[in-house]
Design a protein around this nucleic acid. Sequence first.
DNA 1: GATGAATGAGTGTTCATTCAT
DNA 2: CATGAATGAACACTCATTCAT
Lengths: 190, 190, 190, 190
Amino acid sequence: MRIKDDMKQAALFEATVKLVNEIGFSASSVSKIAKEAGVSPATIYVYHKNKEELIVSTYIDIKQDMSRAVLEGFDPTLPIRDIFQNVWLNMFAYISEYRNYVQFTEQFASSPYNELVNHQEIEKYFKPVIAVLQRGISQKIIKDVDFDILATFIFYPILTLSNARLCRTVKLNDAMIEKAFTLAWDAIKL
Amino acid sequence: MRIKDDMKQAALFEATVKLVNEIGFSASSVSKIAKEAGVSPATIYVYHKNKEELIVSTYIDIKQDMSRAVLEGFDPTLPIRDIFQNVWLNMFAYISEYRNYVQFTEQFASSPYNELVNHQEIEKYFKPVIAVLQRGISQKIIKDVDFDILATFIFYPILTLSNARLCRTVKLNDAMIEKAFTLAWDAIKL
Amino acid sequence: MRIKDDMKQAALFEATVKLVNEIGFSASSVSKIAKEAGVSPATIYVYHKNKEELIVSTYIDIKQDMSRAVLEGFDPTLPIRDIFQNVWLNMFAYISEYRNYVQFTEQFASSPYNELVNHQEIEKYFKPVIAVLQRGISQKIIKDVDFDILATFIFYPILTLSNARLCRTVKLNDAMIEKAFTLAWDAIKL
Amino acid sequence: MRIKDDMKQAALFEATVKLVNEIGFSASSVSKIAKEAGVSPATIYVYHKNKEELIVSTYIDIKQDMSRAVLEGFDPTLPIRDIFQNVWLNMFAYISEYRNYVQFTEQFASSPYNELVNHQEIEKYFKPVIAVLQRGISQKIIKDVDFDILATFIFYPILTLSNARLCRTVKLNDAMIEKAFTLAWDAIKL
DNA sequence: GATGAATGAGTGTTCATTCAT
DNA sequence: CATGAATGAACACTCATTCAT
């Protein structure tokens, strides 16, 4: 038995992201993805059980990649504000470099595919950040609000700022990223 | 000749929203929508040029409806904070009653269909709110930040809070809505 | 009861010819023909039993019109050659003025619709010409060949010369028409 | 992987010719052709880009086949009359054996599909015959008339004689073919 | 492992026709 | 007489997937 070809695996990943971003889930047929990746449609079924699994696994791969990038240089001993600021900067760096990945996850998250993934599994990747949030609440640094509401104000705006339309009209520079972080921090801090 | 049936028009609207929310744009075929609405697939083409136009017009109808609801009782003579609080309360009322509509618009906004609508046309509906925002900035009540960033922190979190998962786990009560508004206001206020 | 509107009848005739010539029988749908004629699709069914009858009756109308034109000035007392020359000239005059009608009949004749018309009925219109042909044979002026073969050489080339492609590249002038008639006559004369 | 099946290709060709002759282009739907050929409608799209290409390629295949048959035993050293007589005999032999193919080309030629083929490409197949025609003119054996008019009298009558109705009523025998050729030759010879 | 051929099921859309007005 | 609304049936075509190689 030959070994599965990592190049093909990667080509399929990139082709899936690219096509879904360009033409949406609906129009991204298996054969179009195969052609974009330079393989036969049948080959996709060597690597993935079916189309659904191809798309869901692409999403999970991105989320894993994203969490690794976001937690880079994570230091729980720093002041809480600095920890969050570091997370923001990592996030923006990631978004700048891999905007297409983020765009894919946004489309995915608001599609019915979203129901097929184990979100607890994915939240696990971001656990350290959540822990800091909880520490902040107990230390009366962060508002004592339902966790989901806090998350909405810290994490969601970052994603939104990466929106295609926004990023096209506003080229985000360091000063603006700073300011944006200030808004997020003001929202959650006590 | 028969006259166009408003009941059919409305049934198509509801069927489109329902199906897209349940199974996504991709799987919401014209014939499924027709069956859900209780009409023949061909009848859809009496009311809409094609599937795309059916979906886009559904989106626009919702956005119009939403803006009407959000601006209810809008009073530009009130203090700025009160104006925004009113918008929030309207928004939440709308989301509570028509969560399915909001869910539809979210999925729509991150799909390629989004590129087909004239967003300036839609933003027009929300013009009064935007004007207040600008007044707040010039009166040094609101942070002098790029408008898109402010919007990200005021409007988008509301939508996110309507997220299916969140709303399922957390039943938002009046106290929480107040708190959530506080976060938004703290983010943008000077 | 109002009287059927001759204007509408004529508009339908012209619309049918025009559309069939431009896009063929297949693509000439009832509703397109109706739109071209400026009436409702339903109105067509006031004047014609169905689409088939609309097209067949259009064909028959043209054939009748054509026979009237071709036999103009028909004089059986003239020499046989002159009679045929007169028919040719009439035919060319007709083709020049109503090329679109001729084009329609050609397409019709090689389509399965052709089986639906009573050809003996139509040949009747051209009976005088056929009689002259038979007289020519018995007077040893015209070759004693099966009638269908003779007809092939006299009448068919005229139609072919009206072919769109040909008429585009060659503008038929009087001299050429004369020459073309000479070929036809040489073919059948003894 | 499986290899493309020549049997299927041929079955599609025959099914297309048969159906178009029987019910016309319009009524010859892709699924009917597929059923007649004993394949799935989807399979047609393995062999042809779309319906149009299926029909046009069927036409071109026939024309190529026909030219091969017509030029059989072509000998430019023979007297010009003999060359043309040979072409006629080949043509009739072809028409007798493959009347359905010829019928298809006639219907095709007067349909809008006709505009989709490169006619110069097809005329190329018949180039040797055209060359002889031109030689005949310069040697004062053939009338000095526009080439298109000559062609109308030599080639088209043959096709017309293959007409379904005619061939049904008149069984063309060798003597009649001879006579018919005489008419054609008398038409063009000086 | 990798693939192009093959397909049943489905797509969005248009059709000829009927119906209520 | 005239019509736009309405539709079942059909259209050309694409889909996700399987299969033989």
